[in-house]
Amino acid sequence: MDMVKKIVTWARIKSPWILHFNTGACNACDIELIAALTPRYDVERFGIQLKSTPRHADVLVCSGPVTRQIEDRLVRIYEQMAQPKFVVAVGTCACSGGVFKGCYNIKSGIDQVIPVAAYIPGCPASPKAIIDGVVKLLATLDEKK
């Protein structure tokens, strides 16, 4: 049983499929995220693939402070993902709300709405930082078992 668990954890670390979701960002973080997926950085080395449906994805990569309009959609997309699932907040806005913190029309960060596993700060977060963040998230997965 322990062996099976180990193999499954190994497989999870080696094959994180991500889903990109813009929760009201200014697009800068999205451009950097797309840059991280280009052949220049080649994330397929780590088994990372961009998937287009929440059903296939393991990691939900969100960018931007959650606007009140997108809040319901974010929760719905999160609920459509299959267990086990992780959320990564990319960019200062996604981590804390950034310059928009306290505005009447936003929720100040992803973690106000859904649980977040990793925070990647930066305005915008650079592709290298994003890849580093995802790799660190997977490392914690190994410790938890």
Partner: peptide
């Protein structure tokens, strides 16, 4: 590009087998 390591399809398969069915 460099491309995936040799065990990539196997890792994808095992991970999907261990995931929740919706």
């Amino acid at each position: 590009r460099v491309g995936p390591p040799w065990f990539q399809p196997l890792a994808d398969l095992i991970k999907l087998l261990a995931k929740e069915d919706i």
